[in-house]
Design a protein around this nucleic acid. Structure first.
Lengths: 355, 355
DNA sequence: CGGGATTATGCAATCGATTACACACATCGT
DNA sequence: ACGATGTGTGTAATCGATTGCATAATCCCG
């Protein structure tokens, strides 16, 4: 595969039409062009027409670099996530992107891959680009560094996943009603032992993860249901998961329900359950966080605590842009961002049936 | 929710440490600081130390805007996709991002949502930011506009999805072996009628979609298998899909296999099949493009033509950065980017059993 | 020890857009 | 008719980093 011939050429690229070209073409000064483009300041109708025609003819687009340099506003948002492999980030990103686009903002993405070093590098890149705000989508590996950048003027906004000061706008708050509904239903069905299955612990712990666990444990315990925390390792190896599942269920008093703490884990658990010939939902009820068309398609049907990451993304972006003065007051018509449909399929546990 | 107090303030943000501050702090000129930072030009060991310490102490990060303005290199890539809701774009994006990060590049994303207007706007934004290269991830709604920008110096790189000149690097070429293997297997099992199910047609047609269909049709036809194209509408309404499936299978000579043309469609079809009580794979074999842990978890097991979008993303980015002179020759150790495992579960069609 | 090469550093122009300021003209009220 | 406003436009400084050129210091070798 041959490289393109001009690879590595220094000055690179065709001329590039600047504001001066437009000014010359329209027979005005650059100041006038700028004023016409931005709509700020005065400009007579005739001049405006002339300029716009020149812009059109030459295909002029102001350079974001120059503009950013001069005005210190880059019209750019950054989104930093801890693990871009997690499917929930796609709708989240999409939400952010759509709102950003609507206000002329660009979106830079960064994936720290849960690595301190990578994250540090990404943060530096984002800061170098002077993003007007940085949305952090999950836990941060380098809080010190982030704090430094924050002092340096970086506006940091934490997504619901990212924890931080507990406000109404936190994962716990958003998901609480759905979690309580789901746990209540489990208890009502007669379950008395529930396994709460998580992936390998992350360091630092993902805030959303902790919030979920705490609320689940509390809600269930209060209702007399024992919660057994299970950490699933080696989730990329189906066989390991399968044997872990077998082990979990082959105990004298096995859990009668499995609560999967994170979306990416769900298909792996389901696969293991199938491989281990565990009947759902008769032998164990299966409940998971997250959402995906696949979860809805899975048969036997499984219960899902849905999360509307797209709307979350929109909401975060809206709020950020409002803070930046780039968007109007975000409409506060908030649909619930997480839901649980009580009719979703879970079974009465075998032992509890005769109660 | 009160806005932050300084919302809308013009100059905005803390001072921001510039190269001049560093120069002053280190007692040298800005030129020297620049040379130390970039490693280009001379700088004595002692000076270098002093400068680096100042940089460290002040937390200086060069402004990408200023640098970009001066050098016309923004160290930024753009990725434009037609529909960010499609899960394959997540691994693809991830691949691009990882390679970009490794070379100090930032990644701007844009989602055209298959709208001409949105896309036009996104393209302008990307161009305004002077991305050094634009990766287009699927079909483009505004070829004229893209051509204009291209003439203006925008380097456009088409992902395998995006079609364009048919090179070794196209969706068709990548997927061909896997598609042929899958089709051959279908034919060998005795299937004689296969439904090829697509979502609503897009305008313009997605190149990958066309390539897939053409190759599937050709491969199957040659082997004496009839291919019945089915366009599935209203895929967001489970009931509509279910009745469409019923209708499709309640014919005198129904297809004995369903080939799902796109990943996002698969769970919807599966759900409909379950709702319609269609036994898999006995009544119809199910085969789909795409990949996701969910597909592997689905039971009864379904056959998948896998696509390694992460590696595709890496490969595209690697090639782009190489063209830009920012990365070394991409290693040409190419693992297959699409695979089909012939042992995957498909059944012999009922009618053909006694053959 | 002289002089060309090499190393080290500073000065100042430059990239493209924005905007404070100055100026010119038009309008209007009294 | 005069100044107060309100419009329309241009001049030039400015943002932060890079880099060509000039200058200065050092070195090497005969």
């Amino acid at each position: 595969m041959a490289p393109s011939p001009e690879a590595g050429a220094r000055p690179a690229g065709p001329p590039g039409v600047t504001i001066r070209h437009v000014a010359a073409d329209a027979g005005v000064s650059t100041a006038t062009v700028s004023r016409v483009m931005s709509g700020r300041g005065y400009a007579s109708g005739a001049t405006r027409q002339t300029v716009l025609q020149a812009v059109e003819r030459l295909g002029y687009r102001p350079s974001a670099s120059a503009r950013g340099l001069r005005t210190a506003r880059t019209a750019t948002l950054g989104v930093l996530v801890a693990n871009l492999a997690n499917p929930v980030f796609l709708p989240f990103l999409r939400g952010v992107e759509h709102v950003a686009e609507a206000h002329g903002y660009a979106v830079l993405i960064a994936d720290s891959r849960r690595s301190r070093d990578v994250e540090r590098h990404e943060l530096d890149t984002l800061y170098a680009h002077r993003v007007e705000a940085l949305i952090v989508g999950e836990s941060v590996e380098n809080p010190e560094h982030l704090a430094t950048l924050s002092e340096a003027g970086l506006r940091v906004v934490r997504a619901p996943d990212a924890g931080g000061e507990s406000t109404a706008w936190s994962a716990a708050a958003i998901e609480a009603p759905a979690i309580v509904a789901a746990c209540t239903r489990l208890a009502d069905l007669g379950h008395r032992r529930v396994a709460y299955v998580t992936g390998p612990a992350t360091r630092p712990p993902a805030p959303r993860g902790s919030a979920r666990r705490d609320l689940v444990v509390q809600t269930l315990t209060v209702r007399g249901v024992a919660v057994e925390p299970v950490t699933m390792r080696g989730t990329d190896d189906p066989d390991r998961v399968t044997s872990a599942i077998r082990e979990l269920l082959d105990t004298p008093r096995p859990p009668t329900a499995l609560l999967c703490a994170a979306h990416p884990l769900a298909p792996r658990l389901l696969r293991a359950l199938a491989d281990a010939d565990v009947a759902l939902p008769e032998r164990v009820s299966f409940l998971t966080f997250g959402d995906s068309p696949w979860a809805a398609a899975y048969r036997p049907a499984i219960a899902v605590i849905r999360r509307d990451a797209y709307t979350e993304g929109r909401a975060v972006a809206q709020r950020v842009l409002y803070d930046l003065g780039a968007a109007p007051e975000p409409g506060s018509a908030d649909p619930p961002l997480a839901t649980f449909d009580p009719r979703q399929s879970m079974a009465t546990p075998p032992a509890a049936a005769p109660r």
